[in-house]
């Protein structure tokens, strides 16, 4: 009964929805892009980044992935552009750019 959410949308007939609207899967929200909410966009200046990772836990949108102890590129599909990461960076390695594009 595991759910394939690509088969569920606003045109799905009632027989095609999951029982009790339960979701038999985890983390399906990854398929929903919230990046388009942005009015400002964080941009990483890689030369300045010292990989202190202080920007990672302050992200409300889990949009700074960590791989092998290092932060990766911003997940622009989901980043909402709140600017917390830029304000906590001790090395000014993140700047906020106006608009949705990095």
């Amino acid at each position: 009964m595991r759910t394939d959410i690509t088969k569920i949308n606003e045109r799905t007939p009632w027989q095609g929805l999951t029982e009790g609207l339960q979701m038999f899967a985890g983390g399906t929200s990854r398929l929903f892009a919230t990046g388009e909410w942005r009015t400002n966009t964080p941009v990483l200046i890689e030369d300045k980044c010292r990989q202190c990772l202080l920007c990672v836990p302050v992200c409300p949108d889990s949009s700074i992935p960590v791989l092998e102890g290092k932060r990766g590129a911003f997940d622009y599909d989901h980043c909402k552009g709140c600017g917390i990461c830029a304000s906590v960076c001790p090395f000014d390695a993140i700047v906020m750019k106006e608009g949705i594009e990095p």
């Binding site: 929200s29 398929l31 919230t34 909410w37 202080l54 992200c59 409300p60 889990s62 960590v66």
Partner: peptide, 28 residues
């Protein structure tokens, strides 16, 4: 911090909390 942040993320992105919300920072 580094090793804790290397743990798999248990709260996926794509939720609809407001930009800058404190609640999901807390949950994570």
């Amino acid at each position: 911090l580094k090793s804790m942040l290397s743990r798999p993320e248990r709260l996926a992105p794509g939720h609809r909390m407001c930009a800058g919300c404190g609640a999901t920072i807390g949950v994570r």
